[in-house]
Simulated assay, not measured.
Amino acid sequence: MSDRRTLGMGELEKIENRPFEKAPFARGAMAVNKKRGDIVVLTADLGKYTDVYPFRDAYPEHYYNVGMAEQALVTVAAGLSHAGMVAYCTTYGAFATRRAYDFLAIACAHGNANVKMFAGNPGLTTGYGGTHQAIEDLALMRAIPDMTVIDPCDAIEMAQVAEQAAEIEGTVYCRLLRGNVPVVFDETYRFELGKAKRFGTGTDIGFISTGFMTERCLDAVQALRAHGINASVLHVGTIKPFDAAGIAEFAQSVDKVVTAENHILIGGLTSLVTDALYRSGTLKPMLSIGIPDRFIECGSLPYLQTKYGLTAERVGQQVLAWLDAAAPVAAT
């Protein structure tokens, strides 16, 4: 079995020091359809690259490929939902949010349609450049009223979200982890909508992260111990509804805060954390790690993720540089 996680079309990133699972989304979707029998999965000609073929093979009468037309994907899904089905959609995040934004807002969220959009290639998980990198999707989706927005970390959480999504009222947007997805959490982990989860007790640094950046932050915590820095991680799997109270409580328990997201630093996790801390009257030194406000070039994933600071090693380096810059200068 390959030890590389599949990202874009044929793109592979080596998984080190962790087990992995293939196609956890399909596992969750099949599990919930086995229980309910009312799940349909639709894709916009990306079944192979969004890992829905296992579901198609198990439930061929519940599978639809609408072709390369995201607007049609969303409107057909909305129609099926009003006919009593729970519609799971898959495509790439850049296509779902940019091409079908109005359809998700009006045909789905405005009409309280039971549509669950699972969007692949979030942030810098593809090297295909600005046309394929969904780097602003969380900001766009959380701005839609009545929209639920989820950014899972690993295979465990991805499968659980896919299984639970049918029970979430209304329209859901979830970033899709596909291919060979690392297993970061253990089997005791339980995804809870709107609830952030803390890992560790360190108080020197408190990482607040979402999506695959939680994996990076957990690894950075281990590396920082060698420098005498004790840190903990708060994983924010749900962007909307947002656990503002949990974020404030966590920030109050640590000396400094670091936000980390696979998304531009506008309108995503960092913006939500800043707002939550302001509203709670919590003032902490804060470092923000994420994608800059620009379209990202094409390139290999190791190169891009390293350049833009999204690897575990670069997270640790940025924290150390920040702490060094903030350290008081001894009087001479």
Rank of each mutant, 00 (worst) to 15 (best):
V273C: 03
R294D: 10
G268T: 09
Y308D: 05
L269T: 06
R314G: 03
S271F: 04
A312S: 13
S271I: 00
R294H: 14
G290L: 05
L272S: 04
I289T: 11
W322Q: 08
T274Y: 04
V319R: 08
E313G: 14
T311L: 09
V319C: 00
L323Y: 07
L304W: 09
I296N: 11
Y303C: 01
R279Q: 07
S280L: 01
P285C: 10
G309D: 14
V273D: 05
L310R: 08
L304Q: 15
T282S: 01
L269P: 04
V273P: 00
V315R: 06
L304F: 12
Y303I: 05
L287E: 06
L320N: 04
L310K: 07
I296T: 12
S280Y: 06
T270Q: 10
W322V: 05
L277A: 14
T306L: 10
A321M: 10
A321I: 00
Q318N: 08
Y278A: 14
Q305N: 12
D293Y: 04
L301K: 09
Y308Q: 01
L283E: 15
V315G: 05
L272F: 02
Y308I: 03
L272A: 13
M286E: 01
S280W: 05
S300T: 15
L320R: 07
L277I: 14
L277S: 14
P292H: 07
Q305W: 00
T282R: 02
A312T: 03
R314K: 15
R294Y: 09
E313D: 14
D293H: 11
I289G: 10
F295K: 12
